[in-house]
Write a protein that binds this DNA or RNA. Sequence first.
RNA 1: GCCAGUGUAGCUCAGUUGGCCAGAGCAGCUGAUUUGUAAUCAGCUGGUCGGGGGUUCGAAUCCCUCCACUGGCUCCA
Length: 647
Amino acid sequence: MIKITFPDGAVREYEQGISSMGIAKSISEGLARKILVADVNGEIWDLSRPIETDSTISFLSWGDEKAKSTFWHSSAHLMAEAVEETFPGVKFWVGPPLENGFYYDMDLGDQVITETDLIKLEKKMSELAKQNNSFERKPISKADAIHYFKKKGDEYKLDLLSNLEDGQITLYTQGQFTDLCRGPHIPSTGFIKAIKLTNIAGAYWKGDEKNKMLTRIYGITFPNQKELDEYLVFLEEAKKRDHRKLGKELELFTFSEKVGAGLPLWLPKGAMLRGRLQDFMQKAQLESGYLPVITPHIGSKSLYVTSGHYEKYGADSFQPIKTPVEGEEFLLKPMNCPHHCEIYKSSPRSYKDLPLRLAEFGTVYRYEQSGELHGLTRVRGFTQDDAHLFCMPEQVKEEFIKVIDLVLYTFNALGFTDYTAQISLRDKEDRSKYIGSEENWELAEKAIVEAVEEKNLKNVVIEYGEAAFYGPKLDFMVRDAIGRKWQLGTIQVDYNMPERFELTYIGEDNAKHTPVMIHRAPFGSLERFVAVLTEHCAGKFPMWLVPVQVKILPISDKFLPYAENVLKQLLNNDIRAEIDERAEKIGKKIRDTELAKIPLMLIIGEKEINEEKVSVRRQGKGDEGTKTVDELIAQIKEEVNNRTLID
RNA sequence: GCCAGUGUAGCUCAGUUGGCCAGAGCAGCUGAUUUGUAAUCAGCUGGUCGGGGGUUCGAAUCCCUCCACUGGCUCCA
C-alpha cells in the first residue's frame, strides 16, 4: 500500500501501482470524468500512469493552465495524426503548446499545404477525436526508439533522440500515430471537441535561419464549441482594436509606397496626439533634471566606428551617404548615443556636473528586414524619447531607480498595468557578440538586478542573447490587442561606450575617471508607443491626448454664429475643438462624431441659445444635459489636468 | 531576408470556368432640405483592376518578375 496526500492535507491509502485515474474514480465518477492530468509530487502526469510510491497528488482539469497546456499538446499530436493521414511521408519536428493553442513543425517534402487543407484537416481531426483513442505512454530504450524512427525515416526525431538519455525515453501513441514525446497527455482524444486550425507559417528548423524552413501549422482546440466560439469572437474584437485599422479610421498616420515601406507619415490628428505625448515626457523630464539637446539626422561614419555600431550593424544598415566632392561617408543616424557622447565631450566635466542627463526626441533610421515591418510597431524611421545619463559609478543604482520611476509614472498616466519588466543579460554560452570587459558587464548586470529588486518589479530574466551588445538592459514589455508582446520602455547600463569615446570627468581626487552611461527611453519610440496605446484604449484616447476634444454640432446653420462664439471661447482656453458646419441632420452629425471617437459633442440649437448654454453629449455614453460654456471649460480642464482615463 | 497568402475607386468590398465600354455602398462634389441626440433625398465625379513583361483573337481573371501589405519564422543597436 502507498500513502496518497491530497491538496486539503487528507491522506488515504491505495494499492501500489494505482493510477491517478483510479484514485479519482475512488473519490467520485464526476471528478474522474472532468480531470485531464494529475500533479503528482509536483510533476504533471498522465492519469493512467501507475504511482509506485507515497505521493502528493492533485487533479487538474481544463481551467488550470497546466491542464490546458497538456490539452493543447495532445491536440498537436491529434493534428499530427490527421496530417500524417493526409500527407503521407510527412516528417515531424516538435509540436508544443502555446499560451493560446499549439503548433506542430513538420517537413512536408515536396507537398504543399494550403488554407483549404486546414478545413480538411480540421474535419479529419474531429473524426479522429470522436474515435476517443487513448494516449498511451510507452517507455522505450534508446536503441529501440532509434530503430523505430530510422524505419519510419524521420530524421528530425532521430535528431531529438540524439540528445536524449537512454532510460528516459517514452513514446506516445493515439490511434495510428506514434510520437517521440515525454508527455504528459490527456487521457484520450475524445476530450477535444472543438478544433480550429488558425494558420500556416514557415519556421526555421531549430529557429536558425541557416537551417531548412519547416512548415508550421497553428491551431487551437477546446473541450466545447462554446469556448471556441468565444475565442473567435475575442479575435474579431481584437481586430477592431488593431492600431493599423484605427490609425486609418482616426486619421492618425498613413504609409505611402512612394515614400517607402516602414516610413510612417503622421497625419494632422496623429501629429497632435504624438505632440501631446512628447509634451508630457518633456515636462516629466525637465522636472527630473534632464537637459534637452538636439543633434543632426546624420553622422560621420567614424562616429559609429568609434561606438562599435558600425562593426556590429554596418553591413545590415542603410548604407553610407557620400559627399559628392570629398567622398566623406555619413550614416543616417541609427541611434542617438554617439552624438550625445560628443556633446558630453564638448566641455570638460567635473564630478559636480554629474549626473548629466541629455535628452532628445531623436529620430533614427534603421534598416529592418522587409518581412519584419509591422504597422507603427516596427518601422524603418522612428523617434525615440531618448536620453543618456552620464554618471559616476556610485550613482548608477540611484539613477537607474529614478528612471524606473519615470517609466512607471508614464505607464501609470496611461493606464498600462499589464506589463513585465524583462531583464536581459549576456548570453551565457556565446560571449562573442558583446564588447567590453567581463568586469564592466558584471557591474552593469548587478546594477540592473539590484534596482529591479529594490523596486519590487514583476520581472523575468533572459540569459540568452537579448542584451544589447554594449550592455545589459531592462525592457518594459506590454501586450497589443491580440496578446503579442512589444518592448516599450527600455533602460540600459553601459560601461563600454564611455570608454570607447574616452569620456572622462575630474573626480574629487582631482584625477580623471570614466563615467557610466545609462541609455533610456520610457516610451521606447513614439511610433510604437502610439500603436500600443491605440490598441490599449481601442482608439478612445483620454481627454489630455485626444487630437480633437470637442466637436460642436449646430442643429442648423442658423445657429452657426453662436457655435462660432462657443468655439472661440474653447480655443482661447487651449481646448481642441471643431465645428461640424455641414448642412446635415443632427443625427448624422452625432453618428459621424461618435465614429470619430471624439469624446465630447456640443449640440447647439434654439434652446441652448436661449439658455446661453450648450448640450453636452459624451462619446459612447450619451446625453449629459446642459452646461454653461464656463462650466464645460472647467470640466475639461479638470479632466486634462487629472489625466482622467477612459473607463 | 525566408515560408504561405493577399493586392479591383480615398475607404469597405462584388466581379461565375479568360469574352459586351469593370460594379455597389460609404466618402467627395453639385443641388434641394434647415433639421433636436448614431445614417435626409436626388444627380454627378472618381479605377489603364499594385508596377512591368508574357500566353491568347481576347486578361482584373492564366504564367513570370518586381513592389507593397497580411500571418508566422529569423532579426531588432
